[in-house]
Design a protein around this nucleic acid. Structure first.
Lengths: 192, 192
DNA sequence: TCGTTGAGTCAACAACCGTTGAGTGAACGG
DNA sequence: CCGTTCACTCAACGGTTGTTGACTCAACGA
């Protein structure tokens, strides 16, 4: 069973990843302000000073911890985009990356996190808006994103009782028509 | 011009309200953790110690500051309810009470605030669900509330660029069909 | 008029947190 | 084999924050 891999580079790599993992967990459940370097170090079974030595500051640790490997682009036909949105925040109910949860948890109280989320959402709004034919394309896209954001927050972070233990496909089935409705007016309903 | 109203009870009442007002402002824009008693006291032009003397603790100050005078009930026909929801979080664009903003700002990082918001939202979900005929009434109600929550957060707290300076009625016009879609299946679209 | 009450201030304590610098011992390279 | 490097620890500093106790002074009641 796994001999102690006493190799310098290897040990370094492992404890660094252990710290990052602990950081993601603690940031995700407490948010930036309440998360303490000491708690993260303790969970990673490491001295707090080591965290500083590796990452320089709490903010840089946060940045590295929430950095998502790639920004999955958002393009294709409108119907596929709706489905993709649903898949991302509803279907992927368990494996919503802890990095994203950490960012969302902190976005209302930590300015840097707010900026990060805003930038990422703005980007998605742009991509999504490009696929919407209606006037107000960007506005509609922003409202679609806002909707998914609200569902995610209520479900994952606030833990609304009515949303507990609801299978993903039931959520998707109900939310889908709402998203479609946001994509544009399907017929009349236009007046001065 | 307003002679100094040197009456003991009156002075007390006024500075207390000044502190509460400052608390609402600071809590709303910084959240519970980042808001400091000293900052609140400074804004109220009062010594920090006085805040403690009046309210006992930071948490009690928060409780009193975000306590909303009455819980506006939510009942009536379904159409009216949708309109009421829209009115509350979209139309009332300016005068969303600072107390509510303070609670929302803190709800992701401060457990007490989270509990308060959850309780209030659960209550609204119950009231709204009672007016929805479809099966999954409560689930649908929860998703409607979640949608409005998302729009409010994106618009008021995150300040999404696509939602900046958008007149309230334009928002309402686009969001309304989505809310209606969440109230239930209007026709077929039901299979195994 | 005079003792009492209470609004408001000042200085400080205790705890916590991010951060730092010196130090230790084992892996590394020659 | 030995000096160097480097992962890692220990103890502490400095700043901020919630909170407290003693104090001042003007309004109050008799």
């Amino acid at each position: 069973m796994e001999e102690t891999p006493t190799s310098r580079a290897e040990r370094r790599r492992r404890t660094e990843e252990r710290i990052l993992s602990a950081a993601r967990t603690v940031f995700a459940e407490r948010g930036f302000e309440r998360a303490t370097i000491r708690a993260i170090a303790s969970m990673a079974e490491v001295d707090p000073a080591l965290v500083m030595q590796y990452f320089g500051s709490k903010q840089e640790l946060f940045d590295q911890a929430v950095r998502i490997p790639a920004i999955p682009p958002l393009n294709g036909a409108l119907d596929e985009l709706v489905e993709e949105l649903l898949a991302r925040v509803v279907i992927k109910i368990g494996p919503i990356p802890q990095a994203s949860l950490a960012m969302m948890r902190s976005m209302l109280t930590h300015p840097e996190a707010a900026e990060g989320v805003r930038a990422r959402l703005d980007e998605q709004v742009g991509q999504l808006g490009a696929a919407i034919p209606a006037r107000d394309a960007e506005l509609r896209a922003a409202l679609m994103i806002s909707t998914m954001l609200g569902v995610t927050i209520a479900h994952q972070l606030l833990d609304l009782t009515a949303l507990r233990d609801v299978p993903a496909d039931r959520l998707a089935k109900i939310v889908r028509p709402a998203l479609v409705a946001l994509t544009g007016p399907d017929a009349a309903a236009e007046e001065s």
